[in-house]
Structures are given as structure tokens and as C-alpha cells.
Amino acid sequence: MAFFIETMLGGLMTGMLYSLVALGFVLIFKASGVFNFAQGAMVLVAALAMARFSEWSNAALGGDSLFLANVIGIIGAGAVMFLVAWAVERFVLRKLVNQEGATLLMVTLGIAYVLEGLGQTFFGSEIYSIDVGMPKDPVIMFEGLFEGGVLINKEDFIAAALAAVLVAGLTVFFQKTAIGRALRAVADDHQAAQSVGIPLNKTWVIVWCVAGLVALVAGIIWGSKMGVQFSLVTVALRALPVVILGGLTSVPGAIVGGLIIGVGEKLSEVYLGPFVGGGIEIWFAYVMALIVLLFRPQGLFGEKIINRV
């Protein structure tokens, strides 16, 4: 039983990281109708910037204050993400108002490659570490309940709490504020949004900034757990089935979807793996996504697709 719970918690943790990346997808899709393939690259760039800026400032400060170095790192990475958002709007989206979704999707593929390239040019392509002082030591809980207790990483708890705060904040921002409403309005109809005086350009910069911020949080958590390296971009591929499962337009969907897939792939690997020779973890998410597409194309929490004929 304890082993089952440990496996599940491990899955929840991985799932939460998927969720954070998926959240970036959902935010941009909700607010601009663009399926942003570059979200993975944004996570990479954010993590790279964070790792390098804090490393450089740590060296400049003589290694005295890790906290200060991290603050500088976060500010630096935040500035980089703002720059990305601004550049994407200025040089890409502005030229493509009212274009088909497929066109915009292809453009974000291009953005992904540009970001990956530029990110590594500026920040280097080695493996870097992020140390934000997350406690690495595991704790054993529920000793009274199970023999041997359950082994849990403190780091995972903090990361989960961070993610929860982020999601709650974003939900309120989107549902309850005028800017959130403006963002949703732009996502629905560019022309109509302009007619009520919502400036598209500013709105897009805000959305991409928010998505960049989410990418930064995901990058920091992921990077501090496993190091910052190029393979972070493949995380985006893992987040794809998550958004399909949760629904492209739903913030809670991204979270629940990520958790379901994280837990599902771990449990199936451990308990079903031995019977089929293992390797379930690799394709589990995609098969889940496929099944969802068959029975509920809008995802578990997505807005129902209404087509008027």
C-alpha cells in the first residue's frame, strides 16, 4: 500500500510539471486562439536565463548571497520573457491578425526553433543547475498507518503549493477581472474586441508575458529538480496530450489533465509494465489523448464545441 502511494505521489509530481507547461498552452490559446507550439521552448529559455543570470550574478557577488543571486536571476529571466512576448507580438502576431488557426500554429513552430537557437546562443548549451534553495531531503510520513511509512520529497510539496497558488491566481485573473475578460474577448473575436476598444497589440503582449511567467515557474521547478538542459523542450510534447485530455480552453483542465496523466503513466508502468514488457510510460499519455479525442473531443473540461448549421 505504501509503495502504491509513493508511486502515485511520484506520478502527481511529474503530472504537476506537465500541468504547468500545459497551463502555458491553455493561457495563450484562451487569450489569442493560438495553439502555441513554442511553449516548450519558452520553458527552456526561461530556465536557461534563470540559471545563467543567477550563476553570473552569484559569481559577481563573490558567492556571498545565493538569495540575491536568485532574485537577480528571476528578474533577469522575467525581463527575457517580457522581451520574448514583446518581440513575438511586434514581429509576428501583428502581421497575422485574423489569420487561420493553422497559420498561427505553424508560426509558433517557427518561433520555437528561433527561441531554442537564440536561447542556446546567448546562454550556452551545457547542462546548468538552478538552486533556489529547495529542500532536497525526503521525509517519511504516515509511519503509523503503513509499515515503513511513505517516502516524500519536501521539494515536491513546495513545488505543488507553488503551482496551486499560481493556478488559483490565474483563474481569478481570467474570470473576475476586466483585463481577463478583455483577454478572453480577444481570443473569441479580434474584430469585435477592437470595436469595443480593446487594443489587440497590448493584449497579446500581456498574454505572452503571463505565459512566459508560467514558463518561468515551470522552468525553475523542473530545472531545480533535474537540471536545465535542452531536453526540456520535449516536455512540451508531453504536455500536448495533457491539454487534449483537459481541454484546450480550461485552466483547471490543464491541472487535472496533467495530474491524471502523470499518475496514470507511473501506475501503469509499475503495475502493468511487467506484463507487457515495460515502456508504457512513453506512450501512455498519447493513447489517453487518443481515447479522449474519440469520445470527448473538447476534452474533459473544455468548452463544448457548438456548431450552428
Binding site: R181, R184, A185, A187, D188, D189, Q191, A192, A193, S195, T249, E303, I306
Partner: peptide, 9 residues
């Protein structure tokens, strides 16, 4: 002319 509302809202 061709209603441009925010359909999801």
C-alpha cells in the same frame, strides 16, 4: 452584420 460576439462568454 454577421454577429461578432464572444461566443464562449
Amino acid at each position: 452584420q454577421n454577429i461578432a460576439l464572444f461566443k464562449g462568454m
